[in-house]
């Protein structure tokens, strides 16, 4: 019951944060000297057309009323439409969300696949040249912003070697191989930014776990080393990785924004940035609110999942 109560209070906190963020962004964007009706009506704007548009968009109402209407629409699943071209946000999301979705999914899988063995290996071989090489490599990658690495990879593999072309995204149903090819460089770029966090954390976590008494006991019983690593060491350490994976969602979104620009992928990042440049502020507002909600919800889920995964922290001792 206590756990349920905690979950409920976390849920309320999360909802409150998203509500505040969405209101503050709404308010700040409303302060900008930009008239959506000019965008909507276009160059042939007459006074009547503008007035009609303002009425339609209910711009003459107060800020709170406008925000309330926007929020009510959001909650009923109506994400609104672009002032600029009238395309609904829902429709655009249908096109752009899969691009970013695949990008993020592949990146997470690849990061885990690379960092798990390497992190384990460098922890077990702590302070040997293997460890120094792996840790040093991870540390260098941390200092390599994705807009540098992405540009360099594009230079080498697309411009010079011509193994890939920067022709944009290919859907998995059209051409699976082409889909992978179109996302390989972006995924590698993003992974290089995310993976070091996993690896370093896993390494320090495993080093700590290896010094636990129960690992010593397992070793004394003569259990095979692989078994100890898999069952006694990796299992507790994996919880840390889950937590960091959640926290790294932000890092992933940052990276995705830049990577989509470099590789010309028509995903969420490109969508948001073009909306910003087009002063399409309703789209900006909706996207920022959605991203904040997704991001805060991820963190909450990770927090909530932690005690479920790790029995040791399930009931806090008082």
């Amino acid at each position: 019951m206590a756990a349920l109560g905690r979950l409920a209070s976390r849920l309320a906190q999360t909802a409150a944060v998203v509500l505040v963020v969405s209101f503050v962004t709404y308010w700040m964007l409303s302060l900008l000297p930009s008239d959506p009706c000019f965008l909507s009506v276009g160059t042939g704007a007459t006074e009547e057309l503008l007035a009609e548009c303002r009425q339609r968009l209910e711009l003459d109402r107060g800020l709170l009323a406008q925000y309330g209407a926007w929020l009510a629409n959001m909650l009923t699943g109506d994400l609104g439409e672009s002032y600029r071209n009238g395309i609904t946000v829902t429709e655009s999301l249908g096109q752009k969300l899969p691009v970013t979705g695949w990008l993020v999914l592949y990146t997470t899988v690849l990061s885990a696949a690379v960092s798990l063995p390497l992190g384990l290996w460098s922890a077990v071989r702590r302070d040997t040249w293997v460890d120094r090489l792996i840790s040093g490599g991870a540390f260098s990658l941390l200092a390599l912003p994705s807009f540098i690495l992405g540009v360099v990879l594009a230079l080498v593999f697309a411009a010079k070697l011509r193994w890939f072309d920067l022709g944009g995204y290919v859907g998995p149903t059209e051409d699976l191989l082409g889909h992978w090819k179109s996302l390989l460089l972006p995924v590698v770029t993003l992974t290089a930014g995310i993976m070091p966090f996993f690896l370093r954390l896993l390494r320090s976590d495993v080093i700590a776990t290896l010094q636990e008494d129960y690992v010593e006991a397992a070793r004394a019983k003569g259990l095979p080393r692989r078994w100890i690593l898999a069952r006694h060491v990796l299992r507790p350490s994996s919880f840390t990785v889950v937590t960091v994976a959640g926290l790294n969602a932000a890092q992933l979104v940052n990276g995705a924004l830049v990577v989509e620009i470099i590789y010309d992928l028509d995903g969420m990042g490109t969508y948001l940035i073009s909306a910003v440049f087009n002063q399409d502020f309703l789209v900006v507002q909706t996207l920022v609110a959605l991203i904040a909600a997704a991001f805060v919800a991820t963190n909450m889920l990770v927090d909530a999942a932690y005690p479920l995964l790790d029995p040791r922290v399930r009931e806090p001792k008082r």
Partner: peptide, 17 residues
């Protein structure tokens, strides 16, 4: 609230506003 947005999006938003 400040932490609820990824860094780049927060910065982009602030500069826009």
């Amino acid at each position: 609230v400040l932490l609820s947005l990824p860094a780049l999006i927060l910065a982009l938003f602030i500069v826009t506003v």
